Amino acid sequence: MNHREFFNRMAPQWDEQVRHDACKLSRIVTALSLQPGERVLDIGTGTGVMLPYLRQALGMLGELTAIDVAEEMLARARAKHSELALFLQADASLLPQAENSVDAILCYSVFPHFEQPQAVLSEFARVLRAGGRLVVAHGESRAAINALH
């Protein structure tokens, strides 16, 4: 079973199985140093846990795109937060954004799942503008993540 299949299968119960610390989530978004009006990608958005935090930091003028490889995760994120972001199904190693078009990228609780992390990082470098920011963060310990998966 590949990652897309796994996360599609897990989507219906994901929000009940995974807990997030609101203080940690706020600190992660603060680390991005977002400014109103910027363009931001939430890579591996899952069910959209970070979208309200990102939208609050960006304001309504900012462009927020939620990207996930699993269409079931995206469907749940869209159902909860349809007004907060644009939702796109895509592989992080093949993003649909143009070169130098993004101000910030957030990878929350997703980076260990990338099958080709080097290709993903190259793609991030391609789409980030000069001076753009990347935050890779996880809210759980390695042991907790391994127990879940």
Rank of each mutant, 00 (worst) to 15 (best):
A66G: 07
L64K: 02
A144P: 09
E38T: 12
N146S: 15
P12G: 10
L64T: 00
Q97A: 07
L34M: 09
P96F: 12
Y53M: 05
A144Q: 15
L148G: 08
R126W: 06
F114R: 07
D42N: 06
V18C: 09
A31M: 15
P36S: 10
E123H: 02
C107K: 00
H113T: 00
S109F: 11
A22H: 12
F114N: 03
H113G: 02
P96N: 03
S101Y: 02
P112K: 08
H149Y: 15
R9W: 13
V120Q: 00
V49M: 00
L88D: 00
P52V: 00
A119E: 09
T47C: 12
I43Y: 01
L51H: 10
R19D: 15
L86T: 13
S101M: 08
M73D: 04
S101W: 03
S33C: 12
I67L: 09
Q17N: 14
R55N: 05
M60W: 13
V136H: 11
D91Y: 00
G59L: 04
S82C: 06
S26Q: 14
E140G: 12
E16A: 15
Y53A: 06
R9Q: 13
A57C: 10
A92C: 08
S26L: 08
A77C: 06
D91M: 00
Q118N: 13
I28V: 15
E99Q: 14
P117A: 08
Q13Y: 11
M10F: 13
I43T: 01
V136N: 07
A137W: 10
I28C: 11
T65N: 04
R129W: 06
L54S: 03
I43K: 02
F7L: 08
N2L: 04
R4M: 08
L121D: 06
K80C: 07
P52W: 04
W14N: 02
L128K: 12
Q97M: 08
G132D: 06
D68F: 01
L88T: 06
S26C: 08
M50Y: 06
S82R: 04
R129S: 13
Q13N: 14
A147Q: 15
S141A: 10
F114T: 02
R55K: 12
D68W: 00
A92H: 01
L148R: 15
L61T: 14
P117S: 05
E99S: 14
L134V: 03
M73V: 01
S33K: 15
I43V: 14
S109H: 11
V69Q: 09
L58A: 03
V29C: 09
D91K: 00
F111I: 00
V49R: 04
P12M: 04
E63C: 12
R126K: 13
M50V: 02
L41W: 05
L128W: 11
S93W: 00
Q97C: 07
E38W: 10
E99K: 13
R129I: 08
D42M: 07
N8E: 09
R55L: 05
A66W: 01
Q116D: 12
N146K: 15
E123L: 03
R4A: 11
D21A: 06
W14S: 03
Q13D: 15
R4L: 05
K24H: 11
H113P: 00
D21C: 04
H138S: 08
I145Q: 13
A85K: 01
D103E: 14
A92K: 04
A31V: 10
R78A: 10
L88A: 04
Q56Y: 12
P52E: 02
S109N: 15
G37T: 07
S122V: 09
A143P: 07
I67N: 02
Q35S: 14
L61Q: 13
L51T: 04
D42R: 07
